[in-house]
Design a protein around this nucleic acid. Structure first.
Length: 944
DNA sequence: CGGATCACG
DNA sequence: GACGTACGTGATCCGA
């Protein structure tokens, strides 16, 4: 017996998931999750401790899943397709599991494209063939197929969580059949977790009965013809192929090549030094103490349920980072290379391919990604390992000599396979820009990561200054790397003296461009690892990251505007403003600049002597809309004329003139640029031109929307979420009457009026509407009083009534504020964080401002998450519906605008409505329906 | 370049 | 006793 070898095969991946769910969510003082690691460590400890016991291991190896891909995916593309991502706080623990295994000096088997189950099966059979006993440390039902005895060598299983051995009897008890028939049972049952189809409607009971009766799967399926008429019979016949496919999928592959010989898995006791280092590093002090005192096997009960006090406090006290960042070398610009030959370019492309990750940056001659011409590309497959590939330098001065560089077409042809390679991650800072530039060169870059978007997922709201809210590269480099990038200004100059990037000498251009790629690579290394630890993975991976190429596509499509129509409006507005200006001057008794609030204020309040002039902190009279409306109410004709003048001047300068200039001469369309990090709440913002503030509220402004048109034979389709923020408030604050009203499709403001005032009139409904919005924005009695034109007392009474009728609202507000004060950030239903660094400010105004924003952010942000999810799903859904030519053009916070052939309106409306209405699911199940209103027309105005 | 104003959700 | 009153944006103009 002493000579009997006994191999233990630990199913590490399966263990980790179970340990994660069974053990308390331990964290170290820095908040790094270590619960599953702790469970795993104690399990290994216990196994190693059994070394000299009967039935204990003489040999041991840990088997982990390396990749999710295996031969089963080749057979069945849906295999494991529905599997959810691992929990966010488990992800950072995976690498620690490897560290733990190494600390025990245990062999680790981890093969690409082979599932752990197959590897375990192959090792078990190999050991069995040598006459060894085998224990599989797992409780996976698929592995139960292996249990049994052959030639005096036994395979059994050990469920360490239940401290239970699984032999043939246990398998028979569970499945009603011996282990060799378990595969047949599994094939009938299917498996929803692995997405194995099985036979619909057949569960474990029916499956084992069928196999027990008929002997095996084929016999059971053949027997179906003879069965008496039943649902089961029909299903067995109809889904026979599914069952046969499932049989192949559940069959373990027992002849995988073995990377480590079984003899090399011999256990030689646990070397205490590396283990001690590991335990100390991760703060497992009680285990460390045991190691040092050499006290025997850990007690089983405390092992599986570590005492809270010990694990939460002392156990995790040592802390430290879960994934310490390897020291990066300081940035050294002299290490950068200017690539001027195909030979060198090939070298860099091969290097990037081997690294599997490369930071990329493009240099162009314009900030507008739709007009920009590519001037060069930089690559960084590692820190200080960066190059710049000039492609379009020189040439603007016909006397200057063009520097030596690879032809653009040739270079891009060589880069294209790398940039489109699924296996190489391309890292960008603001990748949407580069995606557009490269898409116009015929390169569809994927997959990508974006350091700007990662920064936003982690730190939205934390920094208030700077372009892009503190997520621009220069700021990120300062903040995270302590590095000052070469500024574009010092390279190209500014204002009139500015030179295009293409005219920057190659040595300078290389330093600048390669540095950008290098910095991007480093930022990625710094920031990406924070995502799982700080709860940013879900929103980044599921929402913002996949959105980047979608929005890039929308920007490239652009939208057609009718230039002649705008020009005509411009002319009309010009005539009108001129006429008004004359009349205003006449009333004023002098000429002045109507567009100057300063001059206007002096005319109104000093010269003409109107009352109600308030000076702000700038010492200037306020002349805004509310002031002028008040004067108009007092009979001041000049105020009306100024208001009208302002409206027309605004429309002309901001819209009818500017939009004409924004038409891209090549495409004939207007291409806005969306910022994915512009709004702290997670909304998009739109610039150059801003297409999210095109007039609609007034009749005169609405004419501008009519200038946004579809191509011939096409129409525009506008799909709006109706009252989405109020719906979300009803859900998030759990307001029964509001939820009910939405479920019934009632007029929500009318319902609020009923609840508050007992009756619905034009007046009470209007008040209710104001109050509803006030709630979303964080209310104050003075603010509401101002809006409603009542005294603050009365406004306060209304707020009280509101809270009384909808008590969930008050609770939501208090709870939200409490949480933001404590944690420093608010969160949307989908986990997007917005930070409020001033929420505890001593400055009352500052603090209250943050409070109002913090009340609003989860609602506005959740709405943004939902429409973003709809956008991410939209193109695949349209594609699937045979509507691949329907183009999504614009997003206006709660509205999406599409362009499509007239003939497709019905089908497209249906598909778009469905995607938008279902966009929260399955991540969040809302207690209110999401209403979507759709309109179509030849113009945007007509589509509403 | 900051403030005032006003366009949108 | 003063604070300064609804959330989130971007473009334009004026005037220092």
């Amino acid at each position: 017996m002493a000579d009997k070898q006994h191999l233990y095969l630990v199913d590490g991946s399966a263990y980790i998931f179970r340990a994660y769910h069974r053990l308390p969510p331990l964290t170290d003082p820095e908040g790094t999750p270590v619960g599953a690691v702790y469970g795993y460590t104690t399990m290994l400890w216990k196994l190693a401790d059994d070394l000299d016991k009967a039935d204990g291991p003489t040999h041991l190896a840990v088997v982990l899943d390396k990749s999710s891909h295996s031969f089963r995916n080749e057979i069945y593309d849906q295999y494991k397709a529905n599997r959810p991502d691992p929990p966010e706080d488990l992800v950072p623990q995976f690498p620690l599991i490897r560290d733990a295994t190494r600390a025990f000096s245990l062999p680790l088997v981890e093969e690409p494209d082979v599932e752990a189950d197959d590897m375990i099966a192959s090792y078990a059979r190999a050991a069995q063939a040598e006459g060894w006993d085998v224990t599989i440390v797992s409780s996976d039902k698929d592995l139960m197929q292996l249990v049994g005895e052959k030639d005096g060598a036994r395979i059994d299983m050990l469920d360490t969580m239940k401290s239970a051995r699984i032999y043939i009897e246990e398998v028979e008890e569970k499945f009603g059949v011996p282990p060799e028939k378990v595969g047949d049972v599994l094939a009938l049952m299917g498996d929803s977790v692995d997405n194995i189809p099985g036979i619909f409607g057949v569960g474990p009971k029916t499956a084992s009965k069928l196999i027990a009766e008929h002997g095996d799967l084929t016999a059971a399926l053949d027997a179906a013809e003879e069965m008496k008429k039943s649902k089961l019979k029909e299903r067995l016949i109809e889904h026979r192929e599914d069952a046969e496919l499932s049989r192949v999928l559940v069959t373990l592959k027992e002849d995988c090549p073995l990377p480590i010989a079984i003899d090399d898995m011999k256990l030689n006791g646990v070397p205490s030094e590396p283990l001690a280092a590991f335990l100390e590093k991760h703060g497992f002090t009680s285990l460390l103490r045991r190691l040092e005192t050499g006290s025997g096997s850990p007690n089983r009960a405390t092992d599986l349920n570590p005492p809270k006090q010990e694990t939460k406090g002392a156990e995790a006290e040592a802390g430290g980072n879960s994934q310490p960042l390897p020291e990066l070398p300081a940035i050294d610009r002299s290490a950068y290379e200017c690539v001027q030959s195909m030979e060198r370019l090939t070298h860099w492309i091969e290097r990037a391919g081997a690294a599997r990750l490369v930071a990329v940056d493009t240099e162009t001659d314009s900030l507008d990604s739709i007009r920009a011409e590519l001037v060069g590309v930089s690559l960084a497959p590692g820190p200080n390992e960066a190059c710049y590939i000039p492609l379009g330098h020189g040439g603007s001065d016909m006397f200057a000599e063009k520097p030596e560089q690879i032809g653009k077409a040739e270079a891009l042809a060589a880069l294209k396979p790398l940039l489109e390679d699924d296996a190489v991650l391309k890292v960008f800072q603001n990748g949407k820009y580069d995606l557009n530039v490269l898409a116009r060169e015929g390169i569809a870059v994927a997959p990508i990561d974006d350091t700007m978007i990662i920064s936003f997922a982690l730190d939205a709201g934390r920094s208030e200054s700077g372009i892009g809210g503190g997520h621009g590269m220069d700021e990120l480099a300062e903040r995270h790397l302590g590095h000052t990038c070469i500024s574009f200004k010092e390279l190209c100059g500014t204002g009139k003296k500015a030179i295009p990037f293409a005219e920057v000498p190659l040595d300078k251009a290389t330093e600048y461009a390669a540095e950008d790629a290098d910095v991007t690579w480093r930022l990625h290394a710094m920031l990406k690892r924070r995502l799982p630890v700080e709860g940013g993975t879900k929103i980044y991976e599921r929402v913002d990251r996949p959105l980047v190429p979608v929005v890039a596509g929308m920007e490239r499509h652009g939208i057609k505007v009718d230039r002649a129509r705008l020009a005509k409006l411009s002319e009309e507005f010009a005539t009108e403003t001129k006429r008004l200006e004359g009349e205003i001057h006449e009333i004023a008794g002098q000429e002045f600049t109507v567009g100057s609030p300063k001059q206007l204020g002096e005319i109104l309040f000093d010269k003409l002597g109107f009352k109600g002039g308030k000076k702000g902190k700038s010492g200037q009279y306020s002349t805004d809309q509310s002031v002028l409306e008040k004067l108009s109410g007092d009979g001041a004709e000049i105020a009306d004329k100024v208001l009208e003048w302002r409206q027309l001047a605004k429309l002309k300068s901001t819209y009818t003139d500017a939009l004409q200039e924004a038409i891209n001469p090549e495409t004939g369309r207007v291409h806005t640029s969306y910022s994915l990090v512009g709004a702290q709440t997670g909304r998009l913002s739109s610039t150059d031109p801003n297409l999210q503030n095109i007039p609609i509220r007034t009749e005169i402004g609405r004419q501008i929307r009519d200038a946004f048109v579809a191509e011939d034979g096409h129409v525009l389709l506008a799909a709006d979420y109706s009252q989405i923020e109020l719906r979300l408030a009803a859900h998030m604050a759990d307001v029964a009457p509001l939820k009910e009203a939405f479920a019934e499709g009632e007029d929500i403001h009318a319902r609020t009026a009923t609840e508050m005032f007992g009756e619905v009139t034009r007046d009470t409904r209007a008040r209710a509407k104001t109050i509803n919005f006030a709630i979303l924005y964080g209310i104050s009695r003075w603010g509401l009083a101002g809006r409603l034109g009542v005294e603050a007392d009365e406004a306060q009474a209304m707020i009280d009534t509101y809270f009384q009728r909808f008590p969930g609202i008050q609770k939501y507000i208090l709870h939200t504020l409490e949480s933001v004060r404590e944690k420093g950030y608010s969160e949307t239903l989908f986990g997007r964080k917005t930070w409020f660094p001033r929420i505890n400010s001593k400055n009352q105004a500052e603090r209250q401002g943050s409070e109002r924003a913090a009340i609003n952010a989860p609602i506005q942000g959740t709405s943004a998450d939902i429409i973003k999810r709809a956008m991410v799903r939209m193109n695949p859904a349209l594609e699937e519906a045979g509507l691949g030519h329907v183009r999504m053009l614009l997003q206006v916070h709660d509205e999406l605008v599409f362009e499509l052939p007239e003939a497709d309106v019905t089908a497209a409306s249906e598909a778009i409505e469905r995607v938008m209405a279902q966009a929260a699911a399955p991540a969040v199940e809302l207690a209110v329906p999401l209403g979507v209103e759709i309109g179509t027309g030849k113009s945007w105005g007509a589509a509403h």
